[in-house]
Structures are given as C-alpha cells and as structure tokens.
Simulated assay, not measured.
Amino acid sequence: MKSPHGADLCHCLAARRHARLLTRLYDRHLSAVGLTVSQFSTLALISQHPGILIAELAEVMVMERTTLVRALKPLQSEGYVTNRAEGPRSAIRLSVSAKGRTKLKEAEPHWEAAQREREDQIGEASAVLIRNSLLEEVVGK
C-alpha cells in the first residue's frame, strides 16, 4: 500500500470519504424499505431510548440540534416518530410510533445484509475492531 500524501494525510477527509462509502452501502440495502441509513439509525436510537429529548438525541448522534430537527421531519411526516412537549420550556420528547416500530422491523433484515456485506468486504474481526475504535472516542468506552 502506498503511503498517503497531500490531501490523503487529512484524518477528517479520510473519515468523511469512508463515511460516504459506508452510507452508500447501507442506503443501497435500506432503499428497499424506503429508508436511508441515517433514518434507520435515528429510528433505532429513539426506539432504544423512548421519550428521549431532542437535545439528548442530538448529543448521542453528535449532531447539531437544528440539523437533527430537519432530519426528523420526514420521519415525523411519515408517522414513524411522535413527539410531545413537556415542561415550562416545552422540551420535546421523541418516541417511535407503532408504524415506526413496524418500519424498523421491516428494515432490520436489510440493515443486517449491509452489515454482512461490510464484514465480507474487510472481515468480521476488522469491522468490529474499527467500529469499537470509533465508538470508543465518541462514547468514551
């Protein structure tokens, strides 16, 4: 393998290119059920944390709150995500609706196929090592 040089030395550029590659792979599989990997991940996280505040979800996803609000709109308009305001400052709590849970269940085999394809590309051990390394920095395991 050639040593990186020029723009290829940039950690950020390398991570973004890799992210786009993975996004294409997962989106290809999930397109069969009309979801993107971002939508699938958002639904899965809300499902794991019913009643999560938008600000908390934005933190978990390492996203700007306003970006997350825009990303939630299609999920809400499809009826997959519900929200309720509570408290004096109208904090918004999110939950996955019954329709959203059905969509998530429908999408899971496609997500699993994307997982298998990625593991077939680089090996299961490498895929797990990379994922855990990335999560360690973000979640502080």
Rank of each mutant, 00 (worst) to 15 (best):
M61L: 15
T42M: 02
T67D: 06
R65S: 11
P88K: 11
Y80N: 04
R93C: 05
Q39V: 05
I130N: 04
T67V: 10
L135I: 12
R89I: 01
R101I: 01
I52T: 07
M61W: 02
S126K: 13
L94G: 01
S47L: 08
E64N: 14
V62K: 12
T82C: 05
I54H: 04
E124R: 13
E86Q: 11
V139S: 04
V37M: 08
T36V: 13
I130T: 03
S126G: 01
A114N: 02
R89P: 00
I46A: 01
Q115F: 08
F40M: 02
A71S: 13
L72H: 03
E124F: 12
E56Y: 07
R84N: 10
S31L: 14
N83T: 11
D27Y: 07
S95L: 10
V33M: 15
L43I: 03
V139Q: 04
L35M: 09
A32K: 14
D120V: 09
V69L: 12
Q76I: 14
Q48K: 14
V138M: 06
Y80T: 02
E56H: 12
L129R: 15
A58R: 05
V81K: 01
I122A: 03
Q48R: 14
L68P: 00
Q121C: 07
W111E: 05
R93Q: 10
R65A: 12
P88Y: 10
R93Y: 06
V33I: 15
F40D: 00
T42N: 02
I46D: 00
S97N: 05
S97Q: 03
S133K: 09
E112L: 15
M63S: 03
K105N: 07
M61H: 04
I52W: 06
Q76P: 00
Q48Y: 08
V62T: 07
E119G: 02
A71C: 10
I122E: 04
Q115Y: 09
S38V: 08
E136M: 08
E78Q: 13
R101T: 02
P50T: 05
R131C: 08
I122R: 03
A127S: 13
L94Q: 03
S38I: 06
A114C: 04
F40Y: 15
R70H: 12
K99W: 05
G123H: 04
G100R: 02
S31H: 15
Q39D: 07
H110A: 00
P109I: 05
R84S: 14
S77W: 04
V128Y: 05
M61E: 06
L72P: 01
R89F: 07
E64A: 15
G123N: 04
R101D: 02
P88E: 11
T42D: 01
V81G: 01
T102R: 14
S38K: 10
L135D: 05
L104A: 04
S38G: 11
H110G: 00
V128R: 06
E137M: 07
E78D: 12
L72D: 02
Q48N: 12
V37S: 03
G100Q: 03
Q48L: 13
E117Q: 12
Q121G: 00
F40G: 00
A44H: 10
N83C: 14
V138R: 10
